[in-house]
Design a protein around this nucleic acid. Structure first.
Lengths: 255, 255
DNA sequence: ATTTTTATGTTGCAACTCACACAGACCGGT
DNA sequence: ACCGGTCTGTGTGAGTTGCAACATAAAAAT
C-alpha cells in the first residue's frame, strides 16, 4: 500500500520534468500494468493533481484566478453556455461584452470561432481573450479601473459606451430576479445598463446557480433582455418572468 | 491556401480556452479530416506553437521568449530606476503613466510608497499594479486594445487623455535618439505625444540599453522632456542633446 | 497551357487506449 | 488464523489513433 503513494508522487515528479506523460510509458518505467497507472491518473485527476488526456496526463491547468470557489465549480457549464451563445451570434458585426466570468468564456469562444468583427468591452480579461484573433478589433472602454472585476466602471465608462451601437450585447449577471438580471456591484450594473441601451439585441449568459438570486443592482427589466443562454431549463417563477417578457431561451445541456 | 493558416490560428485560439485538445474533436469542429488536423498539429509542434500528446495537443511548455525575456532583462536596473523616479514624484496629485516595462515598474513602486493620488494610464499592467493601493484612483484610457503592449492605443485614447491635466507624466521609450525619445510602435508613440501635451512635467524613465537607439516614432523633442531617470550617466552625443535641452537628470547607480 | 508543388481526403492496417469484470495478493484488525 | 477491504494484474472487446501509401484537387510556377 505504500507503493501506491510512492508511485503517485513519482508521477508528479515526472510531470515536473516533462509537460506530458503517456500511460504506457509510465507503466513500463514503474513496472506496473497500464491499468494501475490509469487508475492512479484518474484518482489524481479527481484530486486536481493533474489533468488527464487521451493516453496520458499533463500538468494541472491553473484556471480561473480571481474568482470564488463556488464559481470555479461551474466552469464546465460555462464552456457549454459559451458555445451555445456563440452559435447565436453569427452575423453580428459589432458586439459589446460585459465583465464577469461567463462573459469572458463567451469572448474566448468568439475568438476561436468568429472573425472580422468589432468588440467593445469594459473588461480587460475579455480584451485579452480576444486578441489572440487578429481579425477582431477590440475597443476597451475607459473609466475607473476596478481590480476585483478586472474592468472599468463609472460615469466615463457609460458615457464612452454611449458613443457606440452594437448588434448584440453579451452580459452576465450575479442573479436573475423577478424584475430582471442584477449584479452584486452597483458600479458594474450601471455600465451594463449603458450597454443595454446601445445594443440592438441583449443576450444574457448565466448558469443555473443564478436562478432566482437577487442582488442589489438590477440593471435591466426582463423586457429589455432578448435572449437568455443558460445550462438548465428555468422552472417555476423564473420561467414565468421570462415568458411574460418573451425572452428567447437557449439551453446548453450537459453533453 | 488561406484555409490552413486560418485553421491553425483557430487551433491556437482553442488552446487558449482549454488546456488540452483532441484530434478527433478538432476535426469534427473544423469539419476537416483527422489526418489534416494531425498534420497541422505536427507542423505546429515543429514550430513550437504547441506540444503534441497522443490523441491531441497541449499548450507549449516553454514560455514565450518575447514577453518573459523582455521583462526579465534589465529588471535589476529598472527596479532602481523606478525607485529613483518615485523619489521625484512627491507632491504630485495627478500622474499619467505610459505603457512599457519600465513605466510599469514605476507604477509598482508608486503603489508601494505613495498615497491619495489619481493616476491616468492607457496601460492595463499599470492599472493592475496600482490597485493594490486603495488610496490611489486609477483611470484607464479607452482605445483599441493592443495585446503585445497590454495597452490601449489610437485616436480615442489620445482624445480621452486630452480631457485630463497631470502634474507629472511618466513615460518609457524604446530609444533615446538625437531628436528625443522614440518608440518602436507608432500607435503607442501617438499616445505618448498626447500625454506629453497634458502634463506639467514630463519624466522619462529608461535604462542605459536605450541610449542612442533610434526607433521609427519620435514622440517628443528633448525640449519637451523635463527629466530623465536612468541607471547610468549618459555620455557623448546623448549627454549633449540632454544638456542642450536642459533635461534634468537623475541617476540610480548600481547599489 | 502545362508542369510542379502544396494541401487535403481516403483507405487499410497495426498498435494503442479504455473500461469493465474477475481473481489473486496484500494488509490490518479481531 | 480468519475476515474484509484495498490494491494490483490479467484478459477481453470495442473504440481510437498513427502511419503510410495513394488519389484528388487546388494553387503556384514555368
Amino acid at each position: 500500500m505504500k507503493r501506491k503513494a510512492e508511485r503517485q508522487s513519482r508521477i508528479l515528479a515526472e510531470l515536473e520534468g516533462a509537460p506530458s506523460l503517456r500511460v504506457a510509458e509510465l507503466a513500463r518505467r514503474m513496472e506496473v500494468s497500464t491499468e494501475t497507472i490509469r487508475r492512479d491518473l484518474d484518482e489524481m485527476t479527481a484530486r486536481r493533481l493533474l489533468d488527464r488526456t487521451y493516453g496520458g496526463a499533463i500538468r494541472p491547468t491553473g484556471e480561473e484566478p480571481t474568482l470564488s470557489v463556488r464559481h470555479a465549480l461551474f466552469i464546465e457549464e460555462r464552456q457549454r453556455i459559451a458555445e451555445a451563445a456563440v452559435a447565436q451570434l453569427s452575423g453580428a458585426r459589432v458586439i459589446m461584452i460585459g465583465s464577469g466570468a461567463t462573459a469572458t468564456h463567451v469572448a474566448r469562444r468568439i475568438a476561436a470561432e468568429m472573425r472580422d468583427l468589432t468588440v467593445v468591452t469594459h473588461a480587460v480579461g475579455v480584451a485579452q481573450a480576444l486578441t489572440i484573433n487578429p481579425s477582431i478589433r477590440v475597443i476597451l472602454a475607459p473609466g475607473d479601473y476596478h481590480a476585483g472585476e478586472g474592468a472599468t466602471v463609472g460615469a466615463r465608462t457609460s458615457a464612452f459606451l454611449a458613443g457606440f451601437r452594437a448588434d448584440v450585447a453579451v452580459l452576465g449577471a450575479s442573479g436573475l430576479g423577478p424584475d430582471g438580471p442584477s449584479d452584486a456591484l452597483i458600479d458594474v450594473s450601471s455600465v451594463y445598463e449603458a450597454i443595454c441601451a446601445q445594443a440592438a439585441q441583449v443576450m444574457l449568459v448565466a448558469d443555473h446557480s443564478k436562478f432566482g438570486q437577487i442582488f442589489p443592482a438590477r440593471y435591466a427589466p426582463w423586457s429589455g433582455i432578448d435572449r437568455l443562454v443558460t445550462d438548465r431549463a428555468p422552472e417555476g417563477a423564473l420561467a414565468g418572468w421570462l415568458s411574460d417578457a418573451r425572452v428567447a431561451l437557449n439551453l446548453a445541456p450537459r453533453g
